[in-house]
Design a protein around this nucleic acid. Structure first.
Length: 604
DNA sequence: TCCAAGGGTA
């Protein structure tokens, strides 16, 4: 065989580097270290490291700490591997060096390695200090390692570091991330004068654990004790308002934001867009967005999501195209909003197009939530078979949520046979979710398949699967009133029930027919079913709003589940005969009821 | 030489 011609030798130009090593005295550690701030890649770092070895400085702890610190600033798997390698080489570490390593691990997707490292450190007799705990607690928070977190808490108490101003917020954050709000609160309550960061941590915790009222009262407490809020505080408080659907409160925070100059922050404006959108005021969201001087990916995404949840699919798409023209790079959340918009407007072709382009054009790998959007998009549009095959063909294991999305679609298209295939898949993965039994049973009831209804109900009782109770709230005079289905708990419930009875009579005059097929219990009399339906939480909340606000006022209701079909038709009629706008936010989206019509066009 | 809280998600 003839020898392959040797490749022409072309001089390889050295990689462009910001670090000019020629004028440096390699035996002087401080000279070497002065190179690091200009260093931009792992490759350049390795060049500097080579000089340290030549100069016998590889065991010099301050030099090594700097080198390792560089690797841990924006850590990747490769840079952390390299850092670990350097760390392993030295005979004796000190606590600063360890802290630096731990911080790196806490910031990567292998946070528990920080904890493992920590155990080694304890054995070698090093004493943790105030710098040690924040990284380790952060690692516990992101891995939801509550037990390890508690042990660290005990150790911090032993060392008298639990009240350290850096340790305290991370302790609170660790507990909130591990869903242990009681412990978080206990830590907070022991602080005599919490600083703003500690307040932010606890407020965020309550906002995330769906207790926005507690979050907001802590914000007031913070102001009363003269702790000056920062823009991070604004973010937490705004997300509380968004969660609560408390528009008036949100508007008050907006005024506050303007008064104290927080409205220059892109993140704060993004949180405002989100708050207005989730509190049902799309116009205010648009106005915040349009007044922004600079918009990043998150700001565009928030506005796209805002259009999506209000059912303006085309506007969401137009905005996305505008975002592309502005050369702002979309991320995975931008696509979630976009797909969501398509599915809620029935834009199947467009949605599929964007789904494929996210991978091919933008290199964004779809996650489980994008798949969820696709199932919803196909399912809503009635392409149940395609959706089924889509789930089966996924490269990852489908979650019950994915199948559940398809089950809802089967229900709205009344396809019991497909529904049965789907619920079998769900039960294989999780049979404890009461909502699945309810959707399936309602679907069978509507199709008159009573044998299924009874069977499913029996199954549900046997397995003790609980359904989340329906809960709706309405804001009247700055107070949020909550109503549960059946509605025995609200202080004015008796009058409210009477008012609802009258209301239903009036609705019937204009053609309302209660859809009793939606009621789960098969062995109830029709009258009884009607009563169950009448006191659904969303009807109670709407009636309460109707009775307690002046004519013409918009009624804003927030529901924890999807709105029921009967309440949806009732709300349309109420908007017509009382000439009221009703804005109902359910777990999925917004419904704007005006003049007997809903903004969702009954496509939901 | 190392440290805290964080907006947009079906």
């Amino acid at each position: 065989m003839a020898a392959a011609p040797s490749p022409p030798i072309t001089p390889i130009s050295p990689p462009k580097s910001n670090t000019n090593t020629s004028s440096i005295n390699p035996t002087n550690p401080s000279h070497l270290l002065s190179l690091l701030p200009k260093c931009t890649s792992l490759r350049e770092l390795k060049q500097i490291q080579a000089i340290t070895i030549k100069s016998h400085l590889q065991n010099d702890i301050p030099v090594l700490t700097k080198l390792i610190n560089f690797c841990t600033l924006k850590p990747s798997a490769a840079s952390m591997d390299h850092a670990h390698h350097m760390f392993d080489q030295i005979p004796q570490s000190d606590i600063v060096l360890f802290n630096t390593m731990a911080r790196g691990y806490a910031r990567t997707d292998t946070p528990l390695r920080a904890i493992t490292l920590f155990t080694q450190i304890l054995h070698s007799g090093l004493l943790p200090d105030g710098y040690t705990f924040p990284s380790l607690l952060k690692a516990c928070a992101s891995s939801k390692a509550l037990e390890e977190g508690k042990q660290l808490h005990c150790l911090a108490i032993k060392l008298g570091l639990n009240h350290n101003i850096y340790v305290c917020p991370t302790l609170i954050n660790m507990y909130t991330e591990c869903n242990d709000m009681d412990s978080a609160r206990r830590v907070f309550d022991k602080i005599s004068e919490p600083c703003v960061v500690t307040y932010n941590a606890i407020i965020t915790g309550y906002a995330r654990s769906s207790r926005p009222n507690v979050a907001l009262s802590l914000f007031r407490e913070m102001q009363a004790s003269n702790v000056k809020p920062t823009y991070v505080t604004m973010l937490s408080v705004l997300s509380s308002c968004a969660l609560f659907g408390a528009l008036d409160l949100g508007k008050w925070i907006h005024e506050y934001v303007k008064k104290y100059g927080f409205d220059q922050q892109v993140k704060v404006n993004t949180a405002l867009i989100d708050m207005y959108a989730k509190c049902g005021s799309l116009d205010d969201a648009v106005s915040v967005f349009e007044n922004m001087v600079a918009r990043d990916t998150q700001a565009w995404s928030a506005m796209i999501v805002a259009y999506a949840i209000h059912g303006h699919g085309y506007k969401a798409i137009t905005l996305f195209e505008e975002m592309r023209r502005a050369r702002v790079r979309p991320d995975e959340i931008t696509f979630l909003g976009l797909l969501y918009a398509c599915s809620h407007t029935g834009l199947v072709e467009e949605g599929c197009g964007y789904f494929y382009s996210m991978k091919e054009k933008y290199g964004i790998i779809p996650g489980i939530k994008h798949y969820g959007c696709m199932v919803d998009l196909l399912g809503r549009a009635g392409r149940l078979d395609v959706a089924f095959k889509f789930i089966e063909g996924l490269p990852i294991k489908p979650t019950p949520i994915l199948w559940r999305t398809l089950l809802s679609a089967c229900s709205s298209h009344g396809n019991v046979d497909m529904g049965m295939r789907v619920i079998e898949r769900i039960f294989k993965l999780d049979d404890s979710h009461g909502g699945d039994y309810v959707i399936f049973s309602n679907m069978c009831a509507r199709a008159g398949r009573w044998e299924h209804v009874n069977y499913v109900r029996k199954l549900m009782n046997e397995r003790g699967a609980a359904k989340v109770p329906g809960c709706s709230s309405v804001e009247v005079n700055n107070v949020v009133h909550e109503f549960f289905s059946g509605g025995g708990t609200h202080s004015e419930s008796r009058e409210l029930h009477r008012a609802l009875d009258e209301l239903v009579k009036e609705l019937k005059l204009v053609g309302y027919v209660p859809d009793t097929s939606l009621v789960f219990h098969a062995d109830m009399e029709d009258e009884e079913k009607e009563a169950t339906l009448r006191y659904h939480s969303e009807k109670l909340a709407i009636a309460y709003g109707l009775l307690n606000t002046p004519p013409g006022t918009t009624i804003r209701v927030v529901k924890n589940l999807r709105v029921c079909g009967d309440c949806h038709s009732a709300a349309k009629l109420i908007s017509l005969i009382f000439d009221r706008q009703i804005i109902l936010r359910d777990i999925q989206r917004f419904h704007h009821f005006t003049d007997g019509k809903c903004s969702c066009g009954d496509y939901w």
